[in-house]
Design a protein around this nucleic acid. Structure first.
Length: 473
RNA sequence: GGCGACAUAGCCAAGUGGUAAGGCAGGGGUCUGCAAAAUCCUUAUCCCCGGUUCGAAUCCGGGUGUCGCCUCCA
């Protein structure tokens, strides 16, 4: 099955062809660790995880690199800006290093909870300063830079291809005139590669460089890190859609100017999570984190299921009602799967149907990661009479390699949860008492026990094979 | 001012030329002592107007509306 991906660079779906047979170099922009990731950020990482899982499913060996932006960057590009890390550090009374460390750990915990496969290299920008300096030196040597006001700038006028990814018309800015321009820049689109003149006296993160003691500009880290781990040309680069016009545009400029080669073959961008008709944003405060969502009663897997319900290139609307429906659907999915596991009926084998479903599934996921349709396939499998539970189980297991919803482990998770939250022995005893009461048709007592269990958070499920119970979701 | 995206049932959403996936919620049935769970059935002609076509939610033009980016941002 050929994998087709939508490439932002060409604005078309293209068949994916790796540089090296059976191998994929994948770079995904990480988080700036001055605060917790909100669920909008997390949507992008879920998309990237799905991409990676599809590549692995298709037999590729994936080398995945993600950066950690642990260097402070300006809250605005103008002189008045404040360093985000410094700002947060002051607020919390910690050093910037402590801040970065804290939020990096929190982020990695979020990824783990969302069942996101860890990158092969999840690396800090601050650990790659030398690579960045090396890149800037290359650019300097080739004449792509200039120094003004103590800072090293990239000169976009030397790079005619500038803005191709975002289809930016460099001339059009003049008409706009809405942006305050850094007066040191020759061109408004020029960007800083290295700062030596920090506007802030308390800038703690500084390194020596040929241009003086200072720190790197934001964009240079992704270029330096990706090339260091993946080579000067690699397969796929992902990020949020907001990165197209500035961050990725600048990354391309500096990377390709330095090497003289094409840098990335496929650009994939995730759309935003929309909240109350508006994107969720850090700067506006009051954003939802994963742990907040958990407090509200929605597990990380429910959120993952929610995200899978929409295509990654479409805005997804978040609301209480929307996440609630995802919760119901996910819980029902788990219930059905638990029943399938308990009751391994064997129909006459129907390999034809099984193969048909596998093919259909593969077609959906390889068509630019169409998860909504892939989910439709699993629902179809669960509902069918064409195959028995044994075959269903195998299909679920296979499909979950892509979904990453812990479908098979869910039962185990529920059991663990039960052990944490109730006295299992007591529950078992009550269940038995209720069974006895029911046998003697003592409905009053039976219902009383059921109510009691319900108060304990336990849900009783009678079936022809006996009575089961689980924690209420 | 420039650039871009989107508009499908109560809600979340697929589908991008051949007569509307899936999920949730709602309604009805089966099962059950009653419930719950499960299960079956059931609910739209795709923002408006015009055009192209044998045929359009899907292509083109116009309109209306919503949103994003252009400044740190997934």
């Amino acid at each position: 099955m050929n994998l087709v991906l939508y490439n932002t660079f060409t604005r078309k779906k293209e068949e994916f062809k790796p540089i090296r047979k059976d191998h994929v170099g994948l770079y995904t922009c990480g988080l700036t660790v001055y605060n917790y990731a909100h669920i909008g950020n997390l949507r992008t990482y879920i998309f990237e995880d799905v991409l990676k899982r599809v590549l692995i499913y298709d037999g590729y060996k994936v080398n995945h690199v993600m950066n950690i932006t642990d260097i402070g960057h300006l809250t605005s590009d103008a002189d008045t800006g404040e360093d985000k890390m410094v700002k947060e550090a002051k607020k919390e009374g910690k050093t910037v290093w402590e801040i970065a460390d804290h939020y990096t750990k929190a982020f990695e915990n979020d990824l783990e909870q969302l069942n996101i496969i860890p990158p092969d290299h999840h690396v800090k920008a601050t650990a790659h300063i030398q690579q960045m300096i090396g890149l800037i030196k290359r650019l300097e040597k080739k004449g792509f830079t200039y120094v003004a006001d103590g800072n090293v700038y990239f000169d976009i006028s030397k790079f005619p291809e500038y803005g191709k990814l975002g289809r930016i018309n460099v001339e059009s800015l003049r008409a706009g005139a809405r942006i305050e321009v850094d007066s040191a820049k020759k061109n408004p689109f020029d960007f800083v590669l290295w700062f030596t003149k920090s506007k802030f006296d308390d800038q703690e993160m500084k390194w020596d460089s040929p241009w003086g003691r200072g720190y790197p500009g934001w964009h240079v880290e992704c270029s330096a890190i990706s090339m260091y781990y993946l080579g000067e040309t690699f397969d796929i680069h992902c990020g949020g859609i907001d990165h197209i016009p500035v961050h990725h545009t600048n990354e391309i400029a500096q990377s390709e100017a330095a090497t003289g080669k094409k840098w990335v073959n496929y650009w994939l961008h995730a759309e935003f999570l929309i909240m109350n008709e508006e994107k969720m944003s850090k700067s506006k405060g009051g954003f939802l984190t994963l742990s907040k969502l958990v407090e509200m009663g929605y597990s990380p897997m429910v959120y993952r299921y929610f995200c899978l319900g929409a295509h990654y290139r479409q805005p997804l609307t978040f609301s209480d009602e929307a996440i609630e429906t995802a919760k119901s659907a996910y819980n029902r999915l788990i219930n059905i799967i638990i029943d399938i596991k308990k009751n391994r009926t064997v129909n006459k084998p129907n390999p034809e149907f099984v193969n048909k479903m596998k093919k259909l599934f593969s077609k959906k996921i390889n068509n630019d990661l169409n998860m909504p349709e892939a989910l439709a396939v699993i629902w179809q499998v669960l509902r069918t009479n064409e195959i028995g539970n044994l075959e269903k189980y195998d299909l679920i297991l296979e499909f979950d390699r892509i979904f990453g919803l812990n479908l098979i482990k869910a039962e185990q998770v529920l059991e663990e949860e039960a052990q944490q939250n109730v006295d299992v022995q007591l529950v078992e005893q009550l269940i038995k008492e209720r069974e006895d009461a029911r046998k003697s048709k003592n409905w009053a007592k039976s219902d009383e026990i059921r109510d009691k269990l319900s108060d304990m958070g336990v849900e009783v499920r009678d079936s022809s094979e006996g009575t089961f119970w689980r924690m209420k979701s």
